[in-house]
Structures are given as C-alpha cells and as structure tokens.
C-alpha cells in the first residue's frame, strides 16, 4: 500500500513536467500556427493555412536555403576539424587522452556570448588578426573576416565544434585496435583501413555530432547578428523577428513547427543508422 503511494508520488513530477513544460507549449504553438494575425500584433481565432503557404514565398524560401547552407557548411567544417583531431588524440596514451578532452571542454564552460565577443575583437577590420597580418606584410589590405558569411561560419564552427568532437571521440575510442591491426595484417593500406574499418564504425558518432551541430546552427540568431552585421537572415533571426518585432506570432509559430518537423525527420534518420537517443546532447 505504502509502496503504491510512493510510486504515485515519484511518478507524478515527471508526468507533470513533460506535459506542462514540453507538450503544452508545443501544442500551443502548433495551434497558433493555424491562426491569423491582425496587422498590428493581435491574434485572430480563424483557422487557416495561410502561414504555411507564406513560407513558400520566395523571400522566406531564401531564408530557409541560406540557413541550411550555413548549417551544412558549418557541419562539414566541424567534421573536417573534429575527425582527424579525434583520430590523432585516440592514438595517445589513455591519461593524455583524458587530459586533452578536458581541455576541449574547458573553454565552453564560459558563456558563448563572451567567446563570440572575443571573435569580434579578433576578426574586425582593425582587429588582432588583420593587424598582425598587415604588420608581417603578409597582406596589403585588411581582410573582410566578419560582417559577412565567413564571420558567421567562424562563429558557428567555434561555438558548436565540441558537440562534434565529443560524440566522435567516444565512437572512435571504442574501435577495437585489434580490428585495425587485423586489417593491416590482411594487407590493407592505411587508406583502405581508414575507409573500410574506421569510418564505418564511427557512422553513428558522425551522425550524432552532425545532428548536434546542424540543428542549433539554424537557431543561433545572436551569432548571425553579432558577426554577420545583420545582413544575412537565418531562420533563427526570422523567428525572432516575427515574435519580437514584426508582431506576427502565428507566422513565427508556423516557421517553428516546420523547423520542428525537419528536426524530427533528422532524428529519425539518426535512429535508423543505429543511434541511441541517450547519446544525443553531448553524453
């Protein structure tokens, strides 16, 4: 009897939490996305599909395409940096490996805005990088490193890199060394070993990392704002504008729901490659 009561008491919090703080907000913006906005910020309770049709306007398609391109490039660069990095680290001694991985996480325990600000100081026209390159006579004119797409990508790669490194490292370090040796014994070259043995066994890690880089990248409006000069509109900026300046909540909700569906499709794909949900989120 007491046991039953205990069970009730400890199961209630998670149910209340999941329903009130996760499901309710999502259902509400789902409903909102089918309503209409009046021209100055109010919401009219009329069911319509107008908000979803509006997404197919060229103006907004462009925003979707831009965001996905930036997110894609960011993800690819993260893979190109993180893959060899994790591979090389995994060849070190176990103790060194732990230390090196701790050093990867350390900078990310400070606020991401602060680090983004550091990049502004570095990338400005008269910032540290340009000043050094000019003084060394490597360049004649300052490079445009920010207030453009390059700036946004540098900021995104920097902020999201650990989310690629962590899952990749954990899947690379799990590869049985005997497998690699066996492959070499069988006469496979290092290239063949890499593509036939190492890559296949890290597919889930790779997918996990890509997911954790690609999805946040779409929403980080502050990086586009600070390093992009407000010239490139990403989906995050568009949603933010609909909620905080253009006063069109239903349209903002429709974009969010679209984004949510895309996220769910990507997660489904991840699960299909054998990924576990518990491994997402940097675990």
């Amino acid at each position: 009897m007491k046991d039953k009561l205990f069970k009730k008491i400890i199961t209630i919090p998670v149910i209340v939490y999941a329903l009130v703080l996760i499901l309710l907000p999502l259902i509400y913006i789902f409903i909102l996305s089918f309503l209409k906005s009046d021209s100055y910020g109010g919401v009219i309770n009329v069911f319509n599909l107008g908000n979803y049709l509006k997404i197919f306007d060229m103006v907004y398609i462009k925003v979707f395409v831009q965001s996905f391109l930036i997110a894609l490039v960011t993800t690819l660069i993260c893979i190109l940096i993180a893959y060899p990095f994790c591979l090389f680290i995994s060849q070190k001694k176990k103790k060194t490996q732990t230390l090196l991985m701790a050093l990867v996480i350390l900078p990310f325990l400070t606020n991401s805005l602060i680090r983004t600000y550091g990049w502004i100081v570095l990338l400005r026209k008269e910032g540290v990088i340009n000043t050094i390159l000019l003084n060394l006579n490597i360049i004649d004119n300052p490079l445009s490193l920010m207030y453009n797409n390059l700036g946004i990508i540098i900021g995104m790669v920097y902020t999201l890199l650990p989310f690629m490194i962590l899952p990749l490292y954990s899947s690379i370090s799990k590869i049985d060394n005997r497998l690699i040796e066996a492959s070499k014994d069988l006469g496979a070259g290092s290239m063949a070993t890499f593509f036939k043995v190492i890559v296949p066994s890290t597919v889930t890690g790779l997918f996990n990392g890509s997911l954790m880089v690609f999805i946040p990248c779409i929403g980080y409006f502050f990086i586009a704002d600070l390093l992009g000069g407000g010239k490139l509109m990403l989906l995050g900026n568009l949603i933010k504008n609909q909620f905080l300046t253009a006063r069109n909540w239903p349209f903002g909700a429709a974009i969010s729901i679209t984004l949510l569906i895309i996220t769910f499709v990507l997660v489904k794909l991840y699960k299909k490659t054998g990924g576990k949900m518990d491994d997402l989120g940097g675990f």
């Binding site: 999941a18 499901l23 907000p25 999502l26 946040p216 929403g219 995050g236 909540w249 969010s256 989120g281």
Partner: peptide, 29 residues
Amino acid sequence: FKGKGFIMKLLYIPIVIPEIVLGISLLSV
C-alpha cells in the same frame, strides 16, 4: 505506468529541438 513510452519520448524533445523553438513556445504559453 500508462503512457510511459510517450513521456519518455517527450523528454528528448528539449535536447534535440532548436533552443529558439523552445524559447518562443514557452514565451507563448
């Protein structure tokens, strides 16, 4: 308990969805 599988699915949502979507949906509520 009833609906446990569903609740477990819901728990992964804040981890995978873009933060901005969670932010605006909480604000709306």
